[in-house]
Design a protein around this nucleic acid. Sequence first.
RNA 1: GCUCCCAUCGUCUAGCGGUCUAGGACUCCGCCCUCUCACGGCGGCAACAGGGGUUCGAGUCCCCUUGGGAGUACCA
Length: 467
Amino acid sequence: MSIKTRFAPSPTGYLHIGGARTALFSWLYARKHGGRFVLRIEDTDLERSTAESVNAILEGMTWMGLEYDEGPFFQTQRFDRYAEIIQQLLDSGHAYRCYCSKEELEAMREEQMANKQKPRYDGRCLEREAPREGVEPVIRFRNPREGEVVIDDLVRGRVVFKNSELDDLIIARSDGSPTYNLTVVVDDMEMGISYVIRGDDHLNNTPRQMNIMKALGYEPPKYAHVPMILGDDGKRLSKRHGAVSVMQYRDEGFLPEALINYLVRLGWSHGDQEIFSLEEMIELFEVENINNSASAFNTSKLVWLNQHYIKESSPEHIAHHLSFHLGNLGIDPSEGPDILEVIKANQERAKTLVEMAQNIVFFYKEFEAFEEKAAKKNLKADAAPALEALRAGLAECEWSDEAIHALVERTAEELELKMGKVAQPLRVAATGGGISPPIDVTVRLIGRERTIERIGRALEYIEKSAD
RNA sequence: GCUCCCAUCGUCUAGCGGUCUAGGACUCCGCCCUCUCACGGCGGCAACAGGGGUUCGAGUCCCCUUGGGAGUACCA
């Protein structure tokens, strides 16, 4: 049988980190085995599902590069089919109508809780002969009363549930719309899903779903329940933890491959290896190596990976993702040096793309003022001779890293100053601050005109400060 | 409450009965490199939750306790 996996989010918010990881695992599994990966939108909850959420999920998938082979399918477009199945279940006696009121159910639950029992529907409507006047019934699946359901989970191992612990769950609301446990089963069967890789929180639903499948005469797929992702504090991931949306990581300057690499290592491992290319992940991914305990999201490790990928990627690739952040800062790369050159000079000194964008503003825009601390330290009267010599030298020297470097060195020698006493004032003069790539590269990229002009500005600053 | 799941450094993890005086990575702290910031190099701190078994031998198997988590909806 061919391998098919799926990612089935409900569109009630953005694509979050936990969902992104199960999507990644499912995607990897399909890719590794030459199978297909299906995207299915579980939007049966009309109240909470939104079109914006659908778009956000699609956008997140695209940004991460998790392309799907089939879908997106929408469950709301399959209501007719679900209705057929529900009727079929009704006809075969596997389902029945329930006329119980909310109050009645609530009372039942309270009583069971009081008796230290697990609250569950007792099946009283099964005995009901006639419909209740004026009540639109829900439809319940008639769960077996005896025996047990065994899940041979690919990551959890053998998990057993007694049927006596389960109850007759609602598969259609009183308005006739189907509910989650029914639609999942129908779709997983009819879409030919062979491996269901999903969050741990669904483990409890699995025996119910397996029972429905059995009633419908189908073999259940293989299941792999992956543990949850916790926040930095070890608590359940929520909005309190800053970024939980995949797109927020883009906004904060992360490369998709860094996020993917981080996510694949969260709850999965291949020995001591930390860095995985997409090809390696696909080749090495094994469901058996998925951890069974929940793991906490650790932003600093993600940052480290991001820095790694910024360092290792081609300038072209960085440029592609950086343009978004440049735009956010109102920078037009055509108004300055070649962006690829600037990126090359900054790849080793940025942890995020946001940081990189901020660091290269001075290549493209005039800075407002010299950064106070750096200026106070480096733009002092004793720096003036060096700056003047540099201004003169830069006006006529060959415009290359080597020549500029030689000029700075020569200036230091002639004035009997340490390199730092020459290079650093020049850096502050040229960039406005005390941080930049090597001074020769920095100056070369800023350009002759601009550098000379800025040195003049620095000399004015020194003069003014002397008063 | 009940059912199910989980438990190695602060965090992510390796470990699938003896090779563990428990390895790697991130973080943090030193040192080196150095025109700034970084990169890089070297070194350091730091863990088998507790208690019972099983076994010649347990981080590794079993049980209990404790502590986390999930579910218990006409949500998914």
